[in-house]
């Protein structure tokens, strides 16, 4: 449920690192808590994002929540699928449900994120 090759933050985003580019999405726990996703509001390519600050919004039938950037940098790609089929986040939050790719300005920030194991115990406390 929490892939070992990803890093996680306390707001339930995950990060997958490839060189200096970080792919960002939300964890399976987060999508489960939200319920069926009906809208996602994401930044555009070229927009800056800052670790710990909101980069968008995710909305389910019942509620709307902020998305928080786990790392800082510049958006280089946005998942085009999510505009019309946001429900893929429920189906596969680590795969086709990814949200944005960010060219990191400070890869050192990655050290502040949790491993899958740490995140799993963090979630166990939250639930």
């Amino acid at each position: 449920m929490y892939p070992a090759d990803l890093r996680y933050d306390k707001e339930h985003e995950w990060v997958k690192v490839d060189g200096d580019v970080a792919t960002i999405g939300i964890s399976d726990f987060a999508q489960e808590q939200l319920g069926e996703v009906v809208y996602v509001d994401l930044p555009s390519v070229g927009d800056p994002v800052t670790r710990g600050e909101s980069f968008g919004e995710i909305e389910s039938v019942k509620s709307v929540s902020e998305l928080f950037a786990p790392v800082s940098g510049e958006v280089v790609e946005v998942n085009p699928e999510l505009q019309d089929t946001p429900e893929v986040i429920n189906q596969d939050s680590y795969g086709v449900g990814w949200m944005i790719k960010v060219k990191m300005s400070d890869p050192g920030e990655l050290d502040e994120l949790m491993t899958a194991k740490d995140y799993e115990s963090f979630v166990a406390q939250e639930a």
Partner: peptide, 9 residues
């Protein structure tokens, strides 16, 4: 119960 399988479903 607010939901079981999901509100839309």
């Amino acid at each position: 119960p607010v939901q079981y399988s999901g509100i839309i479903e």
